[in-house]
Nucleic acid binder design. Sequence first.
RNA 1: GGCGGUGUAGCUCAGUUGGUCAGAGCAUGCGGCUCAUAUCCGCAGUGUCCGGGGUUCAAAUCCCUGCACCGCCA
Length: 523
Amino acid sequence: MCPKSKGTFYITTPIYYVNDVPHIGHAYTTVAADVLVRFKRLEGYQAFFLTGTDEHGQKVEKAAQERGVDPKVHCDEMVKRFQSLWRRLNISNDDFIRTTEDRHKKVVQKILQDLYDRGEIYQASYEGWYCIPCERFWTEKDLTEGKCPDCLREVVEISEKNYFFRMSQYQSWLIDHIEKNDRFILPPSRRNEILGFLQNPLEDLCISRPKKRLKWGIEIPFDPDYVTYVWFDALINYVSGIGYSSDNPRFSDFWPEAIHLIGKDILTTHTVYWPTMLRGIGLTPPKMVFAHGWWTVEGKKMSKSLQNVVEPNRLIDTYGVDALRYFLMREVPFGMDGDFSHATMVHRINSDLANDLGNLFSRALSMVIRYFDGIIPVPSSLQEIDLRLQESSAKVIAQLPGQMNDLAFNKALITLWEIVSASNKYVDETAPWSLAKEEKDRPRLATVLYQTLEALRIIALLLAPFMPTTAEKMWTHLGMESNLWEQNLEADGNWGGLKPGGKIVKPTPLFPRIDTTKMEKKI
RNA sequence: GGCGGUGUAGCUCAGUUGGUCAGAGCAUGCGGCUCAUAUCCGCAGUGUCCGGGGUUCAAAUCCCUGCACCGCCA
């Protein structure tokens, strides 16, 4: 661990099902994780960010079969869609784990063997109805008119032997853990849901599938006739991905700080199955599981049949990476459902990004070029109004860490925009264009423009986790020679980091306004 | 059916333990500036705080009830 580190931080996204077409929901979780981890790095934490893909199970096996290729070959191709999207979205993950990798399979098998050896796993006969597309068993009373309650498709009656994890024994421990840790499951509404769910008896978890039905999975180490249930396999990525049983120092540094970002649809697996699995293994639960909401599109639920699935690549093509990242983080409180619409997106870009931020950047740099030949001027004595600008910046910096800890990304951005507003107001009230008319006001002009540029430097610094490309552009245009990604919030967030004498680069609009009349045709 | 939640300006929502709490942003209208991406700054509103009843000196805030919507489980 590096000496200046404030501690460790570990963030994960779910591993996405490799067969899925990446949509706005995938992008949402991953961008949120990226924003958070970038902010933590800025704060000085030694951070680790893991994402990846879930590659086993019937759907992959079937899709590969239909194409006449080996499942692994199929996965190797499909995984690229996620990997390339993350590159385009500037996702700064430290690793990418695939459940078909040896490093993962080894850990899954080791855990299974350990649990089996200690009697945490037993074999029993299972009878019930099985839904093949959902890869899920249902009991008689679960069924809806004799069909799968999830997808309403036909189910088949099956009786077979399987292996079970003794999950039920951990029920009271889990309830206790949730009650004692009010930030273990967030938002609080989800925590209540799980506590409600746990008022009913918890059953043991079936963790195997017979190979005669499914071959594409991780073989159960103590019974070659079975493969591992996909969820049991998948959840383990969170520990296999940071070196459990292979890199113990790293694992023990990061695991206690683990934060899982998930969609609300996989809450139970992450807050019931996973903590009890960890308990069985002898590991502590993750520090936090945060379930975010879902996006509707133009007011409607996304679905293949409606053909309204929003492809992030398309949005990037249309609006740009940073505008998309900004929208996702700004529009909706993390944890709530939200709606994506082109009208709202354009509105956000035009008002927040083009008018408020972009125009501030543009007007400030233009004046420095016009009045000082692009050389950052030397400030002289400060007046009350100058100090007020500094104070608003300091106030924002004081608030951000707490808001980020709460994953309140939208609040953080609203707070950050207070500096943008304060700066626009500052420029307006100090009227540098008037000062430029009188030679005697030159020192005052220098001070005003320096203060404005310095506000922009701080804005760029704080914006970096949310909009990395834009922040870098601002940084270099401000003549900053240091590496933006090596800055530290505490030290570099202080007023005065901008060095007079530096050379401003002539600005181009950070975010061109979108003409809504032309926009109609484009989308 | 069980458990939980929500209902506040045109829109999206803030409103700790009941007493300047009737607010913010956006949208709208008016005024100002001209450095800037016709951008920026200022000012101005509008609300039966879902309906009804109750507790209290005092309720958007607590209790009861009705309606509407949502989530989880069944």
